[in-house]
Design a protein around this nucleic acid. Structure first.
Lengths: 147, 147
DNA sequence: TCCTACACTCTCCTTTTGGTGCGTATAAAT
DNA sequence: ATTTATACGCACCAAAAGGAGAGTGTAGGA
């Protein structure tokens, strides 16, 4: 079994520079935003508020699921800073605070809708892919080209 | 300045249970998937491959930006497990491996498209929201209702 | 009178994430 | 003969994420 056959197609691609299509400045900016928004808790809270409208602290925690108070507070505060949620404090004595999405937050929620739908649609395929990967792993790892 | 005024509207909402609209089993499943997919590096790699089609290891790293080899390998392997990318090893001697999205990965990339567009559209608003939050923080924190 | 509810904050601790640098095999270029 | 290029794996370390539990202040219910 030969290993180092020349293969002109591979050689051709060998020293190709990275193809660039978009302005790197905008890329960097968008990457930064994605880095901040693409967080598990942010997405989960976003969806909770998108679904239920207005929720208070404890309710929000229950809807999100397994989130600690610490993370809930932290994430929600960051989202407030970013202008995604509005936090309203009612000055009563067992405290009452509620959270709702701003128009900006709503628009992000709408944008993520596609991802939620994707997840609902394709979760079976992911599980199947994992199973078949585990199977292949037992035999040979990954795919060897042209063989 | 009174603090504990009764406010019947607040009282009415006080003991309301969490409103439930969807099947908790599906929710849990989708939350799990989101938890895995809503990762900065996953999203960035997804977009890189969605934009450029097929890339080899080093190229992919450059397109993504500030990612270490370790993270790149790790994330790309997880994505392979989840059936999002196909990894092709060419058995030549300076090694040559390239990565491309599977149809499943492509569909997720398409779903995330909305989020990229959102980020491109609204990044100015986020920055503005942060600025005005910082300003308000200097005076009073958050919003006090009915005042 | 004691307990509970609410929306936190604070501290301590463990787990995860992520970075850096080193090694590797070998063909081709210098 | 030495260097370079590729796509990593491995070991070690720093930093960040995240959880657990205690405390807080007080109105209203038991």
């Amino acid at each position: 079994m030969r290993k180092a056959l020349p293969d002109p197609q591979i050689e051709a691609r060998r020293r190709q520079p990275v193809p660039e299509t978009v302005d790197p400045a905008i890329e960097a900016l968008v990457h930064d935003i994605i880095g901040k928004v693409a967080d598990k808790w942010t997405m989960l809270i976003l969806e909770a508020l998108h679904e239920h409208g207005t929720l208070r602290f404890t309710q929000l925690g229950k809807v999100v699921g397994r989130i600690s108070q610490k993370m809930l507070t932290q994430t929600v505060r960051q989202m407030e800073k970013d202008g995604l949620v509005r936090r309203t404090v009612h000055p009563v004595i067992p405290p009452h605070v509620d959270y709702t999405l701003t128009p900006l937050g709503e628009s992000l929620g709408a944008a993520f809708c596609g991802v939620w739908i994707w997840a609902e649609t394709h979760h079976a395929e992911i599980e199947q892919a994992r199973a078949s990967f585990a199977e292949r792993e037992a035999a040979t790892s990954s795919i060897t080209a042209g063989d």
